[in-house]
Amino acid sequence: MPLFFLQTLAILQKDLKTEWRTRERLSAMAFFALLVVIIFNFIYEPGSPIIKTVAPGIFWIATAFAGLLGLSRSYAIETQNDCLMGLRLTPADPGAIFLGKMLGNTLTMLILEALILPILVIFLNLQIAEALPRLILPILLGTLGFAAIGTLFSSMSLNTRLREAFLPLLTLPIFIPALLAAIESFRAVLEGSKITDWLVLSGAFVALYIAACLLLFEYVLED
């Protein structure tokens, strides 16, 4: 296997291991997502048919907000005990560090989404059982896009005076087109209509931004 991927896997393994030992991040994210879903319920009349049309939006808002919470932590742990300096000193390619962290964040968010979907089914009385196979690809693409820009910006935001609080201000405007694609394709799947156009959009978003972030991460990491 090329060295680049070995380095990526090492970073990914490290991130998953630290996360697995505490499970701090994931439990905070899951609880926050649960809160978002429940709070959204109070906006509408109970049992109102509008819930069905806004459910995809609620899913993605919960994912994105909880995701931001987790993303900011994923880099904040590196600031303790000079871990960041350690990362910089490793002979690993900056791109590999980025990719490893991004994949770690993607996996965490996928687990989170797997937890949010049943919550939506229970609280919004949503029927998604037969649509589930078609939902996987748009959700995966949306998550990858979010993790790519979020991972890049999380390291940037930590150097601002606002620290983690700055992350949403950078990530959300850039994520809007992919978010739109994710919500619309989720809705289209529930309605049984075509999602090809939206998939092309999210696919292109993921490809371009992963490539751009791989190249640009070097400049974010340097001191």
Binding site: L152, I176, P177, A181, F205, L216
Partner: peptide, 17 residues
């Protein structure tokens, strides 16, 4: 970095909207 990432977003916003 943000200037580059932000401008790359224009075609996506255009197509999405």
């Amino acid at each position: 970095v943000l200037g580059i990432i932000g401008f790359l977003n224009v075609p996506f916003i255009h197509y999405a909207t």
